[in-house]
Design a protein around this nucleic acid. Structure first.
Lengths: 340, 340
DNA sequence: TTTCAACACTCAAACGTTTTCGCAAAATAG
DNA sequence: CTATTTTGCGAAAACGTTTGAGTGTTGAAA
């Protein structure tokens, strides 16, 4: 076992000072040709690499960005991480991932831990519990200490920082417009109750498009799921008793249950009824039929967040402080659950 | 903006020495009651937290473990991360995640980067390209430097370290035995070509169980998919021309295509034909019908890997070096694609 | 011969901690 | 009232690095 080489050891070995070694390796003109070559050769031979921790301490930056998400076994979040990672890597940054498990306490803990020198900034999606408590002091604290934070997906107005979000209303409008353009008249909506912000916004998009196209809004064609655990039965009943020629569901899960219910009713998807979902996850791609869906482009969101953060980190101190909110456009991915 | 507080600032503010502050905060008996209280109150008021980087440098350990995986948008790997994270957190460790994207070069880069002081040890699943090249010098190098490494899932004999794997053969046996126990006689196998180790091992399990139960092996009931892109058609043809009463597929994807082909042939799953998959991902849980499947327990694997690593990290230096390989048992998760 | 610049290097401080050692002053013992 | 112990605190080194300032030698210009 050969422990890591340090400048000090090289210096002792070659009988020069530590600073000489450091300067030689960084090609300082202060060091003579011969000495420099000798040192470089030695360093190469024994595979010297500077210690990151020491560098971080010296430079007061770690070249590491922390990302705190509510859960990791979750398609959307992994695509975001993937996007962050790509951009971070390009710019020479590392990514350290922490999970809040949707718990307020764990979010606070992780944030405090990483804020003590481990990272230069944060990319974060707020935990469910934190949103319920509406307690953001930990985030505000960290921002006040001068640490840049970028919020994505779940964001709140109370926190002043850069943000990356999608436009749920426009996403929903794209989907419903697509259905109308392809001849649908009786479009069912399977949504969540209104206090889930995503459900509310997507419902708004649905309503707007119907009005814009002079399609009458039929209240009975709108289903708002209360109890997620019982969504399957609710959707089945909804489909059974209503006559629709298209369905817009606010997530993948609702979409596939709608498809199943339609099939059991003797209808074919997409021949008789078209179905569109929201969130382009594994399930949308691989369900049979595969789902036409509104994609949230998690990877782009991650990349955008990383760019915002790194811009802040590398900004000259004299530049004006300003916070941006980037809206990443959704797009409709056409697959086999809609006819066109 | 209030920058982070340091010992030095507290010392200056309270007109004592840095060491006094440090000792007071760590409840050293050297410091008098009064001074200690004063310092602690001040630190609390201004929310002092020691700088992790400085601590890492001093202690020569970072309390951080690196995990390098081939991809993150992948159900299995996320469950592993989740398991690692839980155990790591319990023991006061952070997790830094890097992606190799299945590229040899990126794996080497990440490893070298993190090995220079950023982490105390690694948990790693080898990149596809690395396995093809059979070049593991970067891993061996890191291990030689005294950094503990735990390999999981994709492991190789050439590397001497702790390992966490599942037993594919036993997993497959459980599945096929279950089918036989429930009356199946003509069990189709949808596998990959033999040079994919997973396909080979799971096929072996299938064959062993048939022999053990004196069921004749019919070569025509075994499908080995060459071309993943064309798997759908291959499976459809296979199902169409063969008469089976059960199917064992070596992954989720094959399983759902088998189900679809069966349904299109006019057969019902699970009433007429039972289907079992491998890998308990999103799709298995949420496909309709949901899939009975062999679960690999990624979370357990991650937890196990983290435990092995942390044991190594906290082992006294005088203790004997030894490498373990932990086999995490698979288990059969019964859902709606099999009758029982 | 003196002066000075160029060269090639070393010293020392700094980043923020912890910890060993040393040293006064106060408290106790003799 | 002196001798010794205890108490309370500070100085300094260490972790590994970078970097501005300082130093000694050489060779050339004045």
């Amino acid at each position: 076992m050969r422990p890591k080489l340090t400048l000090k050891q090289i210096a002792r070995e070659l009988d020069v000072s530590i600073s000489t070694v450091s300067k030689a390796l960084r090609d300082s003109p202060e060091i003579g040709e011969e000495t420099r070559k000798k040192i470089k050769a030695f360093a190469k031979l024994y595979n010297y690499r500077p210690n990151n921790i020491a560098l971080s301490l010296k430079n007061r930056k770690t070249k590491t960005i922390g990302i705190i998400i509510p859960e990791i076994v979750h398609y959307f979040f992994t695509t975001v991480i993937s996007g962050v990672e790509q951009v971070a890597n390009e710019k020479g940054y590392n990514v350290i991932v922490c999970l809040s498990n949707n718990s307020f306490d764990k979010e606070v803990l992780n944030l405090e831990l990483l804020a003590n020198g481990s990272t230069d900034g944060f990319i974060l999606s707020i935990a469910k519990e934190t949103m319920q408590k509406e307690d953001y002091h930990h985030l505000i604290e960290v921002i006040n200490q001068g640490m840049p934070v970028v919020l994505f997906d779940r964001v709140v107005d109370e926190i002043h920082c850069d943000k990356v979000i999608i436009d749920d209303v426009i996403g929903a409008k794209k989907a419903v417009q697509y259905l109308i353009d392809n001849g649908a008249k009786k479009i069912g909506l399977v949504s969540t109750v209104d206090y889930v912000s995503v459900g509310k916004l997507r419902t708004r998009g649905y309503l707007e498009v119907l009005r814009n196209n002079n399609v009458e809004v039929q209240e009975n064609l709108i289903l708002k799921i209360e109890d997620m655990d019982n969504s399957e039965t609710e959707i089945k009943e909804f489909i059974d008793k209503n006559d629709v020629d298209a369905v817009f569901a606010v997530n993948e899960h609702f979409a596939i249950h709608a498809i199943k219910a339609l099939q059991e009713k003797g209808l074919k998807v997409p021949e008789d009824v078209s179905v569109i979902g929201f969130t382009d996850g594994e399930l949308s791609k691989r369900f049979i039929p595969s789902l036409t869906t509104v994609s949230q482009h998690g990877e782009r969101m991650g990349a955008e967040a990383a760019r915002l953060l790194i811009d802040k980190l590398e900004r000259k101190p004299e530049e004006e402080e300003s916070y941006k909110t980037v809206i990443v456009e959704t797009s409709l991915v056409e697959r086999n659950s809609t006819k066109s």
